[in-house]
Design a protein around this nucleic acid. Structure first.
Lengths: 339, 339
DNA sequence: TTTAGCACTCTAGAGGCCTGAGTGCTAAGG
DNA sequence: CCTTAGCACTCAGGCCTCTAGAGTGCTAAA
């Protein structure tokens, strides 16, 4: 795979830039006009024919201009695109929006909105993985003599609740002591390491605890399993893209975004790079082959905490999208760190 | 507005039934064939012309069959439709699904899924209104000496958390006592009645409390304001309807479903009937005029707790949709009551 | 290697034609 | 008076043809 250089490279960039902007096939004359290339359209034609030969461009039909292929977008993203930095006024607006002191839950929703509004594509944001979170407190809140509510507070400011059936009647005071005792011992653990077994070892075998311990273990297990609480926003944006003008084209994509497994796949595919881009045919899922996804991991306290992504047509404004995704991933991580 | 009777009424029903099933204009011959009406197509034509005159039917063009108008659907829904009862096997399947003992949050999500899957339209479900809920407990969980987490437990099994900055350093034990004291006094109140002022009266003017009281009041206020946590499902189903084959038709609808104010309007419009139907042009919002909405209130412990709805084309399978919405509203209420 | 020139290809859109579905009206019949 | 057979009429949609214009690839000269 020879590298593309000089004028040819420039032409590829221009074709893709223009196509992204107009959604219309780009002809040789149009390329020459733009960025006043000092060559004739015939020369441009030769170069474009070569680029087509190499698999980066395509003609919808013989007498049409060129359109990028997925491979074309790939080299564009890897080496041609100029990132469109998020303007500083936008940065501060978004910062302000995310640093509003409130529940993590709301921050997640707001990031999703900001991503969708800022790109005109759909966005997906996953709340912090529980397994990576570190327990700070665990509380039992007595409801009735035989039932209590478990509340777990973690470093990511998130907490989850579930009611537990107690084996023996327990007074609020007892409950409190119990709660403090368990709490003291599990504080500092990663949730992912806290299996039922680990908890039993940690706490010993006091009869009353047994039930609670099991329940807490189960709670944590459940939560980790169902952990990826996902916020999706801006699906309607996809319908505004000319390539999805026909609802039958859009339907598989929106359906996919409603299925949990698919979204998880979208968010986690593509290795461990901080920003991951999957273009058209690179997708494992058939339904996603008309789209591109830009996914990123956000970090809280240096550890990977969750993922976010945008989903748009392969004809995506990569320059803009990449910087926005990166910026919001960073900012979200920061914001959650402060809660 | 004379009532429609006898054969004419029957013909209107047949036209609408058939149109709902096929999405194609219905001609006089087709009407006669179906349900072997013992009249000629000419007679049917006369009746259909009358029904068009009355505003219940419409012709897309002179040489086409008839299509129901929104007013036609209205009388259909009010007096012609035969409800398609939810089969008992489906009932038990849905019951089982909803009575899984877990968080209210999950029950909401599952109802939304069931509605969408069971109708092939989009669904919207609102979690229980907080203002109607009755406080059972209120707990402060100490995080650091100067910060605590507020947890409110209500009768609908839902609880919400927020951290509060304390005025003075407070030991866990103090925090606990504080918490118990507040809790004892606010238990039994409707959340909607608990303004900051009401709380201050209730609790008196102990200095340390002030801050906490204000914060709790604010928490509750916020939560009530932002209370309608909404779960939407099956937007992609809308794209499968032939009337939304063109994405530009579907886009306004899906956009609307992404906007909180609109969804709230959809859920609450139409008075206080247990099941409310809004058809096409009856919608206040321009964007919704191509759709019909069937909304219902679900009750927990005899009080209205929340709303759910489905959104589909005006050519909706009303018979099926109405019974499913009603059944799921009832069942959800029951299920939440048991948590 | 570049470029002017040219013949060629193909789509999108306009216009014309035809078919079939379904209508409304009229006049005859129970 | 209601019903119905018969018939003329209308119109969307499919299909064809034609044209204009965009953009191409190739050739041969600079």
């Amino acid at each position: 795979m020879e590298p593309i250089e000089g004028r040819r490279r420039e032409i590829l960039r221009i074709v893709i830039d223009d196509y992204i902007a107009t959604a219309e096939p780009i002809g040789s004359e149009a390329v020459r006009e733009r960025h006043g290339l000092n060559v004739s359209s015939a020369t441009v034609r030769n170069e474009m024919a070569a680029l087509e030969e190499m698999g980066y461009l395509n003609q919808p039909h013989t007498s049409a201009g060129r359109v990028p292929t997925d491979r074309g977008y790939r080299v564009y993203v890897d080496s041609l695109v100029t990132e469109e930095a998020v303007s500083s006024s936008e940065q501060s607006r978004l910062r302000e929006m995310l640093f509003l002191r409130d529940e993590a839950h709301h921050a997640i929703a707001r990031v999703a909105q900001a991503l969708a509004a800022g790109t005109e594509y759909a966005s997906v944001v996953e709340a912090p993985h529980l397994s990576e979170q570190v327990i700070r407190h665990l509380h039992l809140i007595p409801l009735t003599p035989r039932r209590a509510l478990i509340v777990v507070v973690t470093d990511a400011g998130v907490f989850e609740g579930k009611t537990v059936e107690l084996e023996a009647a327990t007074s609020p005071d007892e409950c409190d002591r119990l709660s403090q005792e368990i709490s003291r011992r599990v504080a500092g653990w990663r949730l992912g390491d806290l299996t039922v077994r680990a908890m039993e070892q940690l706490i010993g075998e006091v009869a009353l605890y047994r039930q609670v311990v099991a329940e807490v273990g189960r709670l944590i297990g459940d939560q980790i399993a169902a952990s990826s609480r996902i916020h999706t926003e801006g699906q309607a944006n996809i319908l505004r893209q000319p390539e999805f003008r026909d609802a039958r084209r859009a339907e598989p994509v929106l359906s996919a975004l409603e299925r949990h497994e698919v979204v998880t796949e979208i968010l986690h595919d593509g290795g461990s790079a901080p920003v991951r881009i999957t273009i058209g045919a690179e997708h494992r899922r058939e339904e996603m082959r008309d789209t591109s996804v830009i996914a990123a991991t956000y970090y809280v306290g240096g550890r990977p905490a969750g993922e976010l992504a945008i989903v748009g047509p392969t004809r995506m404004r990569y320059g803009r999208a990449i910087s926005l995704v990166r910026f919001l991933a960073d900012t979200l991580g920061e914001a959650l760190g402060r809660l």
